[in-house]
Amino acid sequence: MPAESEKEAAASEASKLIHDHMILGLGSGSTVEVLINKFLPRFKLKIIAASRATQLALQAKGIDSLFLDSPENPELTIDGADRVDRNLNLIKGGGAALLGERVLAERSSRYVIIADSSKLTNRLGSDFPVPVEVEPIAYHNLASELDSMAIKWRLRSCNCKNGPAVTDNGNWIVDVDASSFDRGASDLYYILRTLTGVVEVGLFIGIADEALIGTSQGVIRLTRNASK
């Protein structure tokens, strides 16, 4: 099953969790875009978007949305992921929306991930870097700290302009190579989170309740209870 078909299968399964008049949180990513384009227009919803990109995708389909400063909490948030392991731990932030996605996930009663099979991994960080959102004024501090720990990294550039990629919050993204870090994702999260100027780290540990993974054999459903 091609990746697009896998994404549609995951999005279709997620749409079964949605009902009219609910408060729905939406993260970001290509599978979330499939959900927006193919399934959401049939519902009457109040939607809170985790990023400006998601808001624009909703607007393109004629769907209104609120942003994160809305005081309401979602009954359900559906989000994508760059990587997900079978314990429902995630790498987030490939689209530079990790802070908004974290805020929305923690405010939601239920947090569900949708993705294609290429996002399923046995070890977080083995084949995809960990995004770190950093205040620009603290970038050099962070670089020095990472260098002192012999952790490889790169400042993410933007393919639409010269210079670094900029988040919705005006911050920069440093992508950390965790492929040789052998102390586990939780340890890496806490190390990175305590560094000066770090706003958010794209390791979501123990947050997701469920993941719907489209595969050539159908949709794999990973749940928090089953993964323990």
Rank of each mutant, 00 (worst) to 15 (best):
D79L: 10
D79H: 09
A81K: 04
R86S: 06
N87C: 08
N87W: 09
L90T: 00
I91V: 11
K92C: 02
G94T: 02
G95V: 06
A96F: 09
A97R: 03
E101Y: 08
E101R: 05
A105V: 04
E106W: 15
E106A: 09
S109G: 12
I113F: 07
I113G: 00
I114F: 05
A115W: 06
S117I: 09
S118P: 00
K119L: 04
N122F: 10
R123V: 01
D127Y: 08
F128D: 01
P129K: 06
P129L: 10
V130N: 02
V130E: 04
V130M: 05
V132A: 03
V132F: 07
E133I: 03
E135K: 11
E135P: 00
Y139C: 13
H140I: 12
N141K: 14
L146W: 13
D147P: 02
S148N: 15
M149S: 13
M149L: 15
R156S: 04
R156C: 05
R156Y: 06
C158G: 10
C158D: 15
C160A: 13
P164I: 14
A165S: 14
A165P: 02
V166N: 04
T167K: 05
T167M: 11
T167I: 12
T167Q: 07
D168S: 09
D168V: 06
G170E: 13
W172N: 08
I173E: 03
I173C: 03
V174D: 04
D175F: 08
A178D: 07
A178W: 11
S179H: 14
S180A: 15
F181P: 00
R183M: 14
S186H: 10
S186D: 13
Y189D: 02
Y190V: 06
L195R: 14
T196H: 12
T196V: 14
V199K: 09
V201N: 02
V201M: 04
G206S: 05
I207F: 09
I207S: 01
A208F: 13
E210N: 03
A211G: 02
A211K: 07
L212V: 01
L212S: 03
I213C: 02
T215H: 07
Q217E: 15
Q217C: 07
Q217G: 09
G218Q: 12
V219M: 11
V219E: 12
V219L: 10
I220D: 13
